[in-house]
Amino acid sequence: MNQQERLAAAEQGLWKPLPLIRDARYRWLLIIAAVVYLLLAVISIDVNWARVAEGLSRGMNFIAAFASPDFTSRGGDILDGLIESLTMTLTSTVIGILLAIPVGIGAARNIAPLPVYLFCRSIIAISRTFQEVIIAILFVVMFGFGPLAGMITLAFATIGFMAKLLAEDIEDIDARQVEAIRATGARWLQLMNYAVQPQVMPRLIGLSMYRLDINFRESAVIGIVGAGGIGATLNTSLSRYEYETAAAILLIIIGIVMATEYISSHVRKWVQ
């Protein structure tokens, strides 16, 4: 329908909004493809309804357990796991960020030479592609069970996360300021210190706080594959069907995440 016809129709009171995709064939192709995909996907969910029915009562028990969480009967385990998670979080964030700074600088196209750039970008790609748990499996094999493997995992994941954002930040900085400092005859390190650092610092601190928060949440899962932390305690309590303890652990995790979020929002405000 061309413009004139649409206007004439609208004058008669016949009007419909233009569809998002103008080309009708393309539109229907997309709709049909989406429907077919969804149908196939739903069909491939293979549900054992008997098992679900049996499990529902267990689910009810679990939800009920949140009303009476049990912090005490495995209090020692929970405390150990928690301390391990928190120490892993802190050390991995610090180490990860320290290592992410050189990688991030190396991955910024505007200040790094090409071979360095490619090398740093591939570290970032690997670190970001694989879920923390997969990396944890490898590090557990290499370093043995325990928090060290977990810490290295989280530090590695932190490098990918922080270095990518840092590199993007550096690529976005104001080029005139860099040139101004370079024009004074500053050396490379001085250039970093005077021209780059002041521009990216506030955001870097904000991101560090955010990553601290993420690392704590991740530290609660990598325990499942033996990398220490509260995840191991949680896993054990679930496999023993001790729902009250599991509920207590989950509540603690939620509480700590809320607290870190609160603190980090304050720190970010204070930095800016």
């Binding site: 649409r6 206007l7 609208a10 004058e11 009171g13 016949l14 009007w15 419909k16």
Partner: peptide, 26 residues
């Protein structure tokens, strides 16, 4: 769903004509 009664749409169109904007409805 943008299903407005026919008289309302044509009234809207007349108003757009009155303010000189009917070519821009879309």
């Amino acid at each position: 769903l943008r299903r407005y009664p026919q008289p309302v749409v044509s009234e809207a169109f007349r108003l757009l004509q009155r303010v000189g904007l009917e070519p821009f409805i879309d």
